[in-house]
């Protein structure tokens, strides 16, 4: 369908979108997280162990590793309940790094030499099927009882609690489901690159996902999707800039934050586009 170069960029883009959405979910409930690379690592290693060592079918392994990641997410979520803002950012960062160091030393999954030999299972179709399912999920969430509860917690946690929202449950849910999605992303990633080692899942990767989301905008789920796509494609499109392209990338981020600190996409923009589209048809 595409040249293999374009296909690989699109597949990475799809995986990045999945990761950005996994971060957006706790974000939408007011919880910032730098733990997503850690959850991704858990998904990647767990699914590889299942397909490679235990002979599980890929999709079952993918689902189970998502669940494992979700359980870890709930565990991290517990101490995170009363912690906010910068403190939560640092807590999740420390957790992500601990996951990385754990896999670096865990001989069962290859330790420092990493883990390879998985089958190529991830392709354009299954990655974008999952992206499409997630879009449906987030669209429905945005117009649902729990979606509103999450948003109200982001706006004012205390008022949300007084309005009758069990914020402990809601936070654990947001964290857990976010980790589940990140676990899926990790499984897809492992069965595309076919070799994983722990330095790949370091804190810089978590920061990268974080940048995707804030760049795109945190008000609505289209933000992370568009933000991720632009930031994944920009370095490829400006290949002609050669060694200066990463500097260009950095500049784009700084300039956008100056011009649109709320991120590229906000609710108002989506409303305007919808209204305009309705007029056309």
């Amino acid at each position: 369908m595409f040249s293999s170069y374009i296909e690989s960029i699109l597949i990475f883009n799809g995986i990045h979108i999945i990761m950005a959405l996994s971060l957006y979910l706790p974000f939408s409930a007011g919880q910032i997280s730098l733990a997503q690379a850690g959850f991704m690592a858990i998904g990647a290693y767990a699914s590889s162990v299942m397909t490679l060592f235990w002979g599980f079918p890929f999709y079952i392994a993918l689902f189970l590793s998502g669940l494992l990641s979700a359980m870890t997410g709930v565990l991290v979520g517990f101490p995170a309940i009363r912690i906010k803002g910068i403190y939560l950012l640092l807590l999740t960062l420390a957790f992500g790094e601990m996951v990385r160091v754990f896999f670096l030393n865990f001989e069962f999954t290859g330790g420092a030499s990493g883990m390879g030999g998985m089958d190529l299972q991830t392709n354009f179709v299954n990655v974008y099927t999952i992206v499409a399912i997630l879009i449906i999920f987030f669209y429905r969430l945005s117009k649902s009882r729990m979606g509103r509860a999450f948003e109200s917690m982001r706006e004012d946690e205390l008022a949300a609690e007084v309005m009758g929202i069990n914020i402990v449950k809601a936070k654990l849910l947001a964290f857990g489901v976010g980790a589940f999605i990140a676990g899926l992303g990790g499984g897809l990633y492992a069965h595309y690159v076919m070799y994983i080692d722990s330095p790949k899942f370091g804190f810089l990767l978590a920061v990268e996902f974080f940048v995707f989301v804030v760049f795109g905008g945190m008000e609505i789920f289209w933000g992370p999707i568009i933000g991720t796509t632009l930031l994944t494609l920009i370095p490829e499109v400006v290949r002609f800039l050669k060694e200066w392209r990463m500097i260009f990338y950095g500049l784009v981020i700084v300039v956008l934050m100056i011009v649109r600190p709320q991120g590229l996409i906000d609710k108002k923009l989506v409303d305007d586009i919808t209204r305009y589209a309705k007029k056309l048809f």
Partner: peptide, 16 residues
Amino acid sequence: LAPLISTIGVSIILQE
């Protein structure tokens, strides 16, 4: 979060 992200942009530029 905007200034935090822009300092990440700066760090990418400086490292390059």
